[in-house]
Amino acid sequence: MAQSKVKRVFLEDLGSGNPVFAQVLGICSTLAVTNVLKNTVVMCAGLVFTTALSNLTVSAMRNVMPGRIRMMVETLIIASYVIIVDIVLRAYLPDVSRQLGPYVGLIITNCIIMGRAEAFALNNPPGLSFIDGIASGLGYSYVLMAIAVLRELLGSGTIWGYRVLWESWTNWSIMVMAPGAFFMLAIFIWIVKGSSKREKK
């Protein structure tokens, strides 16, 4: 019974309840960090870590936390975890940290984390909330990575910084810029929604 609930929560966050293409949350970072795959992966790892642990913490405190100040507490918890991610990156992955620059700090403003804390962690036990955080983070991650692979490939001719396309390939500069992300995301949502509608019929 409990296992089926975990499974349901997990699959829902990846599919029908996906934070990016179903709830359309976290779009800001979807647009900002998907032009180079390496940055996307680090960003996603940071987000999975933060969402899972903030969900766990908020859920553990849900019965003692006064309702009126819950958002302040949630923001504080989220910010603390993000600062930890930032410090760890600066200490152990300085190159990546330098490349991501301000984007790590901006994980704090990612709506998915606050959204899951409010919508899930406040009403569910810590263990399940932790799973939900991981699943939401992964649901966000695979969409971003799919977009990042295509944007980096078409925009720079590389994947993970390695040259994949032939030398004479003309880079589609628009793919590296923000409008490219809008196009890719829209096409992604179109394909996913289109195919899920067809299945229902």
């Binding site: 003692v64 302040m72 507490v73 504080l76 600062i83 930890i84 410090i87 760890v88 200490a91 152990y92």
Partner: peptide, 25 residues
């Protein structure tokens, strides 16, 4: 009081982690 305590706890945690990795950074 609740906010104060939560703030103290989290600031202590981040401070400890920062202090531990300050030299590496």
């Amino acid at each position: 009081l609740f906010m104060l305590i939560v703030t103290l706890v989290f600031i202590s945690i981040t401070t400890i982690i920062y202090t531990l990795s300050k030299d590496t950074i």
